[in-house]
Nucleic acid binder design. Structure first.
Lengths: 208, 208
DNA sequence: AGAAGAACACAACACTTGTTATATTCAACG
DNA sequence: CGTTGAATATAACAAGTGTTGTGTTCTTCT
């Protein structure tokens, strides 16, 4: 109980301030003081909402993951069939500024995740969610008859995750080499040549 | 002039010590003192060979890249045809402990590379080298007649880099999800369904 | 009005960091 | 020999870090 005072900064706002600092100055510069300054507050706010800095970073990463899942669900609303797979990939790829920011943040944490078990678990969770969703959709397509029952859904989902993550990694390091059109061309090319899924737009070059 | 004294620690040894520290304790723990201790020396050695810490990290990353290129060249010696593409991918994928260490190191630096221009340039250089080599080999296969002349070599190389980098990223975060056999199954599956490349067989065509 | 407690500010502590300056060692050479 | 200079050790500094403790506000409830 007890509704509260003047500004009332929430944990989410702290996490989002951390995002902005990380995106602007990099993770090493994201100190408690820098995050507090970004909030136009002092470190007291940060230490009040989070016991640790580790807890703050973990929460920031967790919230980033749930935001992506929420975006994905929104993109899937009312969509059926093959288009669902495309929508999933569209929300994970760095096609727009929002997704680009997400990828930059995610990549900023990868280095830490290698030496921090909890951060690594959080990363794994996201990958497993993405993998699980793709696997589910592939199975649904198989049940529908749109896809051969012979293919290994789990395996194909792993491959798709690898492809989209590779594009995301490539974009964060070489943005010019992976513009949105090329990202999507790679994914569409993969889907058609691998599964024979029809292209919504005009037919292209992927005949062998 | 002047051959020198007792231990004579080189820049390369310092860089390799930095690798070990980063692999064992993570990049944030890789301080000058930690690296010096790993060398069983003091910080004087490190500051003598490197003016900056930034210069040390850049050198360590650069040397990692050249080591990978050297491995790739060694794997390509005397190999012709489609097998060359496979060899390239085999040296980039985290199939063995050596490549796994390379990937862990590379991923440790990605976060810093986002906020450090020189590190980012180094990353881009490696990606461009890998992309260039694959593009070259694809063109060679086209000239040979093993691959349709209609495909866009540059585009296919970008896609292949994305796929292998995605596998590498996936492995560093979820090693159990991408064991060596699965890594290779994904790549082989991609090559066959995308290019129709046959499983390894020998043919005796004249080179060039 | 008064009490309570949440939300925040502020200051200080104990470390660690990168960097620099100054000593020390010791093989090579005139 | 003594001198030189590269290679390493040592020590110190200023700045920044996460964390902790103690005030200060200010709303809400009685």
């Amino acid at each position: 109980m007890a509704r509260v005072a003047g500004r009332m900064i929430t944990r989410e706002e702290v996490a989002e301030a951390a995002w902005r600092v990380i995106l602007r100055d990099g993770l090493p510069k994201a100190s408690m003081r820098a995050i507090a300054t970004e909030l136009k507050a002092t470190t007291g706010v940060v230490t009040y909402h989070f016991h640790d800095k580790a807890e703050l970073l973990l929460f920031a990463l967790d919230r980033l993951g749930t935001a992506i899942v929420r975006d994905m669900d929104a993109a899937l609303a009312g969509v059926t069939g093959v288009e669902r797979v495309r929508r999933i990939l569209r929300t994970t790829l760095p096609l727009g500024p929002r997704e680009v920011a997400g990828w930059r943040l995610w990549m900023s944490f990868v280095g830490l995740a290698l030496s921090d078990k909890e951060l690594r678990d959080e990363h794994q969770r996201r990958l497993e969610i993405l993998n699980g969703r793709l696997e589910f959709e592939i199975r649904a397509l198989q049940a529908r008859g749109d896809l051969s029952a012979g293919i290994d859904a789990r395996h194909e989902a792993d491959a798709l995750v690898a492809l989209s993550d590779g594009i995301g990694l490539g974009y964060t390091l070489r943005p010019k080499a992976y513009p949105p059109e090329k990202q999507w061309a790679i994914v569409e090319g993969y889907l058609t040549s691998r599964f024979g899924l029809p292209q919504p737009r005009r037919r292209g070059a992927a005949r062998r």
